[in-house]
């Protein structure tokens, strides 16, 4: 059998398999509980607990934030680690080490994209402060209003990229060095891991933790949720920035 024929057979086989898969899944969805009913199996004591006890116990008015950073904090720690290890993998693949000097790094800068456009650059300059402000607002109010560390961090990261494109590499890398990036990420993740280790330990062993809910509704409340949101935001922003810089030129300035 020649290659073309084999490819054809493979394509037909894949299509048939996918169609069977879709048919089975559609049949299955028809048997699932209908959309939007309040008596579905997933509306149970767990949801009731998160909504009715959660805000007072954790101090977070936003039940989703309270859930992911208090009750299911281990998942969220894992999630931040997913970001961290993916950044590490991108470093493994794209970081240029060793004898490559700054000149080579600048020479291969922007291999895969067009260079700056004056209109875009000027718009970025106007937008940057507002974007940073918005990101910080979303992070700090994660326990009170929609948002939280992940979304706030993504916005701050986007702001960093805008800043980079508005003011150029030289100005950005005056403060965003490889050392700063590494230290700040490690510090944020370590704080998260250590703080949560403490609450896991006290929780599982029935000890009293210093964490307190404070007055729900105030910015400085909700125990560890606010600091953890800030840590998560730092990790997300740093990951986004470092991935961008790796794809763009393969390394930080030394």
């Amino acid at each position: 059998m020649n290659k073309q024929k084999r490819d054809r057979v493979y394509a037909v086989l894949c299509t048939v398999l996918t169609l069977i898969f879709i048919a089975v899944m559609l049949f299955m969805v028809g048997e699932l509980p209908p959309l939007g009913r309040a008596d579905n199996p997933d509306i149970n004591e767990v949801v009731e607990f998160y909504m009715e006890e959660g805000p007072e116990e954790t101090g977070a008015l936003n039940a989703v934030t309270g859930m992911i950073l208090h009750y299911r904090a281990f998942d969220t720690l894992g999630e931040s680690c997913v970001l961290f290890v993916s950044a590490v993998c991108v470093f493994i693949l794209l970081r240029i080490d060793g004898e490559a000097s700054n000149d080579t790094l600048v020479a291969i800068d922007r291999r895969y994209e067009p260079t700056g456009d004056p209109i875009l650059t000027q718009t970025f300059k106007v937008l940057v402060p507002a974007v940073f402000m918005f990101g910080i607002y979303i992070t700090m109010n994660g326990h009170l209003s929609p948002g939280g560390g992940f979304s706030g961090g993504a916005i701050i990261g986007a702001g960093l990229l805008l800043f980079l494109n508005a003011y150029g590499l030289e100005k950005t890398e005056r403060f965003m060095t490889s050392g700063l990036h590494r230290r700040i990420t490690a510090l944020a993740l370590c704080f998260y891991a250590i703080a949560k280790s403490y609450t896991f330990y006290t929780g599982a062993n029935g000890l009293k933790s210093f964490e307190s809910a404070g007055t729900p509704g105030a910015i400085l409340s909700a125990g560890l949720i606010l600091p953890l949101n800030i840590c998560v935001a730092i990790v997300v922003a740093m990951t986004i920035y470092s991935m961008y810089i790796m794809l763009r030129k393969g390394g930080f300035n030394k």
Binding site: C81, R182, A186, C190, A193, A204
Partner: peptide, 25 residues
Amino acid sequence: MSPVQNVPAFSILILMLCGILCLVL
């Protein structure tokens, strides 16, 4: 609760923490 029962949680957390520290060491 016996102290050895903390091993599962802390072995996961210690590995995580050391992994993070390796970035700066």
